[in-house]
Design a binder for these strands. Sequence first.
DNA 1: GTCATCTTGCGAACTGTTCGCAATTCCGTC
DNA 2: GACGGAATTGCGAACAGTTCGCAAGATGAC
Lengths: 163, 163
Amino acid sequence: MHKIKPAQTISSAAIGRALDQLRTVVKQRGLKSSAVRETVAEVALRRPGHFSVDDLVSDLRSSGVIDAHPATVYRVLPLLVEAGLLQLTLISTGDGARYERAFEREHHDHLVCTSCGKVVEFCFEAIELLQRDICERFGFELTGHIHELLGVCKECRTTDAVT
Amino acid sequence: MHKIKPAQTISSAAIGRALDQLRTVVKQRGLKSSAVRETVAEVALRRPGHFSVDDLVSDLRSSGVIDAHPATVYRVLPLLVEAGLLQLTLISTGDGARYERAFEREHHDHLVCTSCGKVVEFCFEAIELLQRDICERFGFELTGHIHELLGVCKECRTTDAVT
DNA sequence: GTCATCTTGCGAACTGTTCGCAATTCCGTC
DNA sequence: GACGGAATTGCGAACAGTTCGCAAGATGAC
């Protein structure tokens, strides 16, 4: 098991590869390319960490390049997920979806502090193997998983103790 | 690892124990007892499987005992979770919360067929141990987790193949 | 029985997300 | 380069689950 290193700023070359991948999916699905979609993809890929749809809409607005309507972003995001650029995660926030870059990053799960909201990413081969094992035993073909550990971090525990 | 046996119909004695447990929590929190709350608890405990808030409201209505307002049920449920009678679960449905009985049942996780919605419950000691291990390494105190495997069941795979 | 407090019902409000539609953009074809 | 069918976008309304505020009702300590 190891801690995931924080998501690096993505290189322009990687953005290019990601957009190529997106175009492939777009073509496969008989869709048309669009500047808006690619801008959304690029801005989303450049954003570090976990972000909400609203965060992304703000980023797009402040980028000055396009001023995409939230509905448009909502329509684009599933496609970016399908194309493997983004990943839907962090369900437990309870206030809407969170996305993060998936393109050219290793898969990982999340450990969330329920007190301060801190998120630690971790990767644990053994659990992934066990998951596949479980699925097989029940005749399922594993397509994804939600795995989020909830806890209280050290800082919050000591702070609370004082309070 | 083993498959969980389907939730048995809960016995009246167990309901009694559950209500006692609820009363303890209620007292601890300086709240007052209430017939409505206990009826909600009882109907929820008797309901097999996973249910939505709406399901529970319908059950309460058709029970003829009380006709609780949804807002009331929304207010009662967190308390029942805190008292250990219910567990919030099945986040991935995307259409609202799901609950299930937790009182006098073994802990388990879920394997969900993304095609037909079938849910298999499983219990895997090893994963639970690994989770605790991960938390410790990061200095977290584990308080809960969301763990849901998404896949396609055998029946759906063969059906889709034909289609 | 009284009184403070908790609980409930009710409807309005809120939030994240989706929908329908008209205007626009894309792109293969002429 | 213009044309035309199809995909995309912006917009606001609609939607669903959930929460909130308030007034009326229930509870329990004294």
